[in-house]
Design a protein around this nucleic acid. Structure first.
Length: 272
DNA sequence: TCTTTATGGTGAG
DNA sequence: TCACCCTAAAGAT
């Protein structure tokens, strides 16, 4: 379930579990075998998250670059329940009585500092970066990227060069929260609208990191007392809710393609 | 025991 | 725009 919030949570957990100590590295599946032998037993210096990308930095060795893609998953196991990794497990990191098993990643490779920089330079601003609201630069970069595109704003929001870490759930939910129709041309958004989309992305993804899942509804809209008390099936306003009533106005939620993937919106709450 | 689906991304045509 | 990559769980038969 990887949008940016998942990746940043993994980085935080793996930093806590593994950074600053020697880490056993292996690849039961074998596709990362030679690379894992280079790193096995080295000290992990830091774990870095950038959009949907993860980097594991080691002393005097290339970094591991991981991208989960659609189906990639890290599972964490603790002593005394440390299972033998299955044959599909691409990467195992283990230290401190804790093991992380990686399956199904789109990317798991070694890369040198230049390649790390190359990946990061290809990304737009990350709403989960520390300076996302402190500095004016990220929102300016985001607004400028939108201003340069004729395609629908919903399509632009899936472009990792426009905003890094937003995926198919958050893009529809964020545009609902901002009252902006997903098929409006990206360049038609005003400076103020772009600023609101950015700020909403920051708040929503931060919340996702905090609670470990995507919850965008205001509790009051679904009769819950707190966001943590929102039932699983009521977490979202529009994603995958085609034909169901809007949680705010009751209008049937609409769906259609944007940027090659399905998007959802409320025809009454979102205009343009 | 199948088929489908998924919060992603790339490369070919 | 399409085929394809990777895995596992849920749904259909």
């Amino acid at each position: 379930m990887p949008e940016g919030h998942t990746i940043h949570r993994i980085a935080r957990a793996h930093r806590r579990h593994f950074a600053g100590r020697p880490v056993a590295v292996s690849s039961p599946q074998g596709r990362f075998g030679a690379e894992s032998r280079v790193l096995d037993g080295r000290v992990l210096e830091d774990v870095e998250a950038a959009g949907k990308h993860l980097f594991y930095h080691w002393a005097d060795a290339p970094s591991i670059h991981v991208h989960l893609g659609l189906i990639g998953k890290f599972r964490t196991h603790r002593e005394p329940d440390l299972p033998v990794p299955g044959p599909q497990t691409r990467l195992v990191l283990a230290a401190n009585g804790i093991a992380a098993h990686l399956t199904g990643p789109m990317t798991c490779r070694l890369c040198d500092p230049e390649e790390v920089t190359e990946v990061i330079d290809s990304l737009g601003p990350d709403p989960l970066a520390g300076d996302a609201l402190r500095s004016a630069r990220p929102v300016r970069r985001f607004a400028a990227a939108l201003a340069g595109r004729r395609l629908p704003v919903a399509a632009a929001m899936l472009d990792q060069g426009v905003i890094a870490g937003v995926g198919n759930v958050y893009r529809s939910e964020i545009l609902f929260l901002c009252g902006i129709h997903p098929l409006r041309p990206a360049a038609s958004l005003t400076e103020a609208e772009a600023g609101e989309v950015w700020a909403t992305a920051v708040h929503q993804l931060r919340h996702g990191v905090r609670v470990g899942r995507i919850v965008t509804v205001e509790p009051a809209d679904v009769g819950a007392r707190s966001r943590r008390a929102v039932p699983e099936e009521l977490r979202l306003y529009v994603y995958k809710r085609a034909g169901e009533p809007c949680r705010r106005c009751g209008t049937a939620i609409a769906a259609g393609p944007a940027g090659g993937r399905a998007a959802w919106w409320c025809p009454s709450c979102q205009h343009g």
